[in-house]
Design a binder for these strands. Structure first.
Length: 425
DNA sequence: TCTGGGGTCCTAGGACCC
DNA sequence: TCTGGGGTCCTAGGACCC
């Protein structure tokens, strides 16, 4: 249900074109580079040495070679031998993202940061006599002039259609996708272009002879429910452009906090695995404390060299934000989970979060908890003031394992996801 | 030659309670 | 002595998003 009753809304979706790559290009031009990465075949990609060799963002010329996001770098290079590859700089991207959000917030307080490079704006009550298109043009122009990169903007009456509109022709374009335009602009698209239709669902739909969004719209809800459960109903609604979820400025309240890492070499012994786990817990738990949250559930995940994934989680007797307690829980979980086969990836996540203001503790533990709290707070403060490596645990010295792992985009709000039952929120 | 790292939500099955 | 049935909580796995 919209917070504005039954009136029609005006929603914009702003999407940065090839975000990481555009931001790299803009930064380099501002710092004296003569080459614009956006105009040549180029990608932002991780380094192969530490086994993070995938394409994170690509230029449009690179796209013309068939290079895809998520693809391994050697494959991308084989498609385009002259490909320019630049490493990612996450702190730069966070700054660019913040600057974008700051600019957009001048247009409406009803702004939802959907991801690092995407934003929804409800401008229903911010039009002041101007047309949505006029506002979109001004936003687009200002971003180009003031920030140095381009965006796509989608305009419609709900978030789903605004997002579908912004995905049309790129870059630097403004599109509308009002309900009356759905048959012409959305229904001819392949079904995988629809928001929430991923690889698996698209394949399943194709097997059922549904290839376009129009065919999905015309499939009977009963048929879809039989094959996709509650998901089927959602897909059918989305194909008709139905979505009444509000633009929610508070969607960024975290429900889970986690860190994970692909190790540069296979981990085959418990000592090293636990050190990685500790370094992940250090980072994740300090994020927890910075957000004034405590974790009720700890979860550990691993990926083996065959890329198989598994996880193990447990509810804690009492929620905590203490590094030591969280690490104890994580190492116990790891020992139960791991069968000794070599690992390429380890992760730690905290969920069932609650505010650290009022939580239940047993009276017995109160003194110890207070002491741990003070210790964590002191360590956090030293790392904040003197750098994250100012204080490291002795066990990491000469271990070859970084004392703090993860948190590359720390400070960035989490993304909201659709709740199947009521459209998405 | 192995596919990153950060999230959200749903489902199925089991335990347990009344 | 015909194992009914509703509800909650928990966990692992899988789908999706950027």
């Amino acid at each position: 249900m919209s917070s504005y009753g039954s009136g029609e809304r005006t929603i914009l979706h702003v999407d940065v074109n090839s975000a990481f790559l555009s931001w790299e290009a803009a930064y380099r031009l501002q710092h004296g580079a003569s080459l614009d990465l956006r105009e040549i075949p180029s990608v932002v990609g991780g380094d192969r040495e530490s086994r993070r060799g995938i394409v994170l963002a690509k230029s449009i010329p690179a796209k013309k070679f068939g290079i895809k996001t998520g693809e391994v770098l050697w494959q991308a290079r084989s498609k385009c031998p002259n490909l320019v590859v630049v490493p990612p700089d996450y702190s730069l991207y966070l700054q660019c993202s913040n600057a974008l959000m700051e600019l957009l917030s001048q247009y409406t307080p009803l702004l939802e940061r959907y991801s690092v490079d995407e934003c929804f704006l409800d401008i229903t009550h911010s039009l002041r006599g101007r047309s949505p298109l006029t506002i979109a043009r001004e936003i687009s122009q200002r971003i180009k002039n003031e920030l140095g990169f381009t965006v796509n903007i989608g305009i419609s009456n709900n978030k789903l259609l605004a997002k579908m509109a912004s995905e049309l022709e790129k870059p630097d374009k403004i599109h509308t996708m009002f309900p009356s335009e759905i048959p012409e602009k959305m229904w001819p698209l392949q079904v995988n272009e629809l928001f929430m239709v991923g690889r698996r669902t698209a394949a399943k739909l194709n097997m059922l002879n549904i290839f376009t969004i129009g065919q999905l719209a015309n499939a009977s809800p009963k048929f879809l429910t039989a094959h996709f459960k509650s998901y089927g109903k959602l897909l059918n609604q989305f194909a008709w452009g139905i979505d009444d979820s509000p633009v929610n400025p508070y969607a960024s309240e975290a429900k889970g906090i986690g860190n994970s890492t692909t190790t540069p070499f296979d981990v085959d012994n418990e000592r090293e695995a636990l050190l990685y786990l500790l370094s992940l817990v250090e980072t994740a738990s300090s994020r927890l404390r910075r957000a004034n949250l405590m974790a009720g559930v700890v979860s550990v995940s691993i990926r083996k060299t065959d890329l198989s994934f598994s996880s193990h989680q447990r509810r804690l007797p009492v929620p905590t934000d203490n590094t030591e307690s969280l690490f104890k829980a994580a190492s116990a979980l790891f020992k139960e989970l791991w069968d000794g086969s070599p690992l390429r990836h380890l992760g730690v996540a905290f969920s069932s979060l609650c505010s650290d203001g009022f939580y239940q503790i047993s009276l017995f533990d109160e003194g110890r908890i207070l002491k741990n709290k003070n210790l964590d707070a002191s360590i956090d403060a030293i790392r904040t003031h003197f750098g994250s490596t100012a204080l490291i645990r002795g066990s990491f010295v000469n271990s070859g394992i970084p004392p703090l792992t993860g948190g590359v985009m720390d400070g960035f709000p989490v993304m909201a996801k659709p709740a199947l039952k009521g459209g998405y929120r």
